[in-house]
């Protein structure tokens, strides 16, 4: 007997190891799969149940339930609106929507007057509008008038007025007026103007 044979018994062959492990490995895997299968089939649905208004529901189906409910509520809201306000859609409603979607002359006039009064706060009548014209179809507003009573600053005041309007979110495509200075018969300096813009 050699030294090595005495100290280190012969290691088992690899195939013998596999033969020993095969059955426990198979049993363990099968049992684990069975338990997890049972859990998925029986335990998981039980654990994921929620009670909503006294009714048991699967938590996994809540998203679909919510979607259905939302669609149902929207449909019923429409049905109620159709019954309570029967003219809420159709030709009449569309005509009303078109009518009230347009900027109104009164609102635009207020916008222009506020801009005019704000340009020379201490002299609110410095910018005098002699003619205001508005066409709703294209939203174009045409302004005619004069800047007066501010002496040689009249062109500057006109530029400030135009700039204030241009910066308004309700105004677009503003055509710049000609900046001119004229003397009236009584020696006063005025700046007549004519320009237009589109209302938004």
């Amino acid at each position: 007997m050699t030294y090595s044979a005495l100290q280190f018994p012969a290691s088992p062959r690899l195939s013998a190891v596999f033969q020993r492990v095969a059955l426990p490995f198979l049993l363990f895997s099968a049992v684990l799969l069975s338990l997890l299968g049972l859990s998925a089939a029986l335990l998981l649905p039980q654990l994921t149940q929620v009670t909503i208004l006294g009714e048991e529901r699967s938590a996994l189906e809540l998203r679909a339930s919510l979607k259905n409910l939302q669609a149902n509520v929207v449909a019923m809201e429409q049905q109620r609106a159709a019954l309570v306000t029967p003219l809420h859609d159709g030709m009449y409603a569309r005509a009303k929507a078109r009518k009230f979607a347009r900027p109104t002359f009164l609102a635009l006039r207020t916008l222009v007057l506020d801009a005019a009064n704000g340009t020379v706060p201490d002299q609110p009548d410095a910018i005098r509008l002699t003619r205001v014209s508005y066409t709703a179809d294209d939203g174009r507003m045409i302004l005619d008038g004069t800047v007066e009573g501010v002496g040689a600053r009249s062109m500057t005041v006109l530029a400030q007025f135009v700039d204030t309007l241009k910066r308004s979110p309700h105004v677009s495509e503003l055509s710049m007026p000609r900046f001119t200075r004229e003397s009236t018969g009584n020696g006063e300096t005025v700046s007549p103007f004519h320009f237009d813009f589109l209302a938004q």
Binding site: F18, A22, L23, F25, L26, S29, A30, L33, L36, S39
Partner: peptide
């Protein structure tokens, strides 16, 4: 048997 055990283990992993 190793193949069956392996398949069972993989399926168990998926279930987990």
């Amino acid at each position: 048997s190793f193949l069956c055990g392996g398949v069972c283990l993989v399926l168990s992993g998926m279930l987990l």
